Amino acid sequence: MDVFMKGLSKAKEGVVAAAEKTKQGVAEAAGKTKEGVLYVGSKTKEGVVHGVATVAEKTKEQVTNVGGAVVTGVTAVAQKTVEGAGSIAAATGFVKKDQLGKNEEGAPQEGILEDMPVDPDNEAYEMPSEEGYQDYEPEA
Score class of each variant (00 low, 15 high):
Lys32Pro: 01
Pro138Lys: 08
Met127Ala: 13
Thr72Gln: 03
Glu46Met: 09
Gln109Pro: 15
Phe94Trp: 10
Lys60Glu: 02
Val77Tyr: 11
Glu13Asn: 14
Thr92Leu: 08
Asn103Lys: 01
Glu131Trp: 05
Val63Phe: 11
Ala11Tyr: 14
Glu83Leu: 11
Thr59Leu: 05
Tyr125His: 11
Val52His: 01
Val37Lys: 01
Tyr136Ile: 01
His50Ala: 03
Gly31Trp: 15
Val77Met: 15
Gly67Trp: 08
Phe94Asp: 11
Thr22Pro: 04
Glu110Ser: 02
Thr54Cys: 13
His50Pro: 08
Leu8Ile: 01
Glu130Gln: 11
Ala53Gln: 00
Val15Trp: 10
Asp2Gly: 01
Ala91Cys: 07
Ala19Ser: 01
Val70Phe: 07
Glu35Leu: 15
Thr33Ala: 06
Ala29Pro: 00
Lys21Glu: 01
Thr44Phe: 15
Glu13Ala: 06
Gly73Met: 01
Ala140Tyr: 07
Gly36Cys: 02
Val77Pro: 04
Lys43Leu: 13
Lys23Leu: 08
Glu20Asn: 12
Pro120Ser: 07
Glu130Pro: 09
Pro120Phe: 07
Val3Asp: 03
Val3Tyr: 03
Tyr136Met: 12
Ala90Asp: 03
Gly93Pro: 06
Glu110His: 04
Lys96Asp: 11
Lys43Trp: 15
Ala91Thr: 02
Glu139Val: 07
Lys23Asn: 04
Glu105Trp: 10
Glu137Leu: 07
Ala27Arg: 07
Gly67Glu: 02
Phe4Asn: 00
Ser42Asn: 14
Gly106Trp: 13
Gly47Cys: 13
Gly14Cys: 15
Leu38Gln: 03
Met5Ala: 01
Gln79Ser: 07
Thr59Val: 03
Thr33Glu: 00
Val49Asp: 01
Val3His: 15
Gly101Thr: 07
Glu110Pro: 03
Gln24Lys: 11
Gly93Gln: 06
Ala19Phe: 15
Glu110Phe: 08
Met1Trp: 00
Lys12Tyr: 15
Lys10Met: 03
Ala124Met: 04
Lys80Ile: 10
Glu57Arg: 04
Gly67Tyr: 10
Val77Lys: 05
Pro138Gln: 14
Pro117Cys: 09
Glu28Thr: 05
Ala29Phe: 02
His50Val: 10
Lys96Met: 15
Glu139Gly: 10
Gly51Met: 02
Gly31Pro: 01
Gln109Asp: 13
Lys21Trp: 05
Lys96Ser: 15
Glu104Ala: 07
Lys6Ala: 06
Gln24Trp: 13
Val49Met: 14
Val49Asn: 05
Val63Ile: 09
Ala69Trp: 12
Val66Ser: 01
Val48Gln: 01
Pro117Asn: 10
Met116Pro: 13
Thr44Ile: 03
Thr92Val: 08
Val16Leu: 09
Ala76Met: 04
Ala11Gly: 04
Ala19Asn: 01
Thr33Lys: 07
Phe4Leu: 05
Ala89Asp: 05
Ser87Val: 03
Ala30Tyr: 15
Met1Ala: 03
Gln62Cys: 10
Val82Ala: 02
Gly93Phe: 10
Thr44Glu: 01
Glu28Tyr: 07
Lys6Ser: 04
Glu46His: 11
Gly84His: 15
Gly7Leu: 06
Lys23Ser: 04
Gly67Lys: 13
Val16Ser: 05
Gly47Glu: 03
Leu38Arg: 13
Tyr133Ile: 13
Val63Trp: 15
Ala91Asn: 09
Val15Gln: 00
Asn122Arg: 09
Gly86Trp: 09
Val82Tyr: 05
Gln99Thr: 09
Asn122Ile: 05
Lys10Leu: 03
Ala69Ile: 14
Asp98His: 10
Ala17His: 02
Lys10Glu: 02
Val16Thr: 07
Val74Phe: 09
Asn122Pro: 07
Val48Ser: 02
Val70Thr: 04
Val77Thr: 05
Lys96Glu: 10
Pro120Ile: 13
Ile88His: 06
Ala76Gly: 13
Gln99Tyr: 10
Leu8Gln: 00
Ala124Pro: 11
Thr64Leu: 13
Ala76Gln: 12
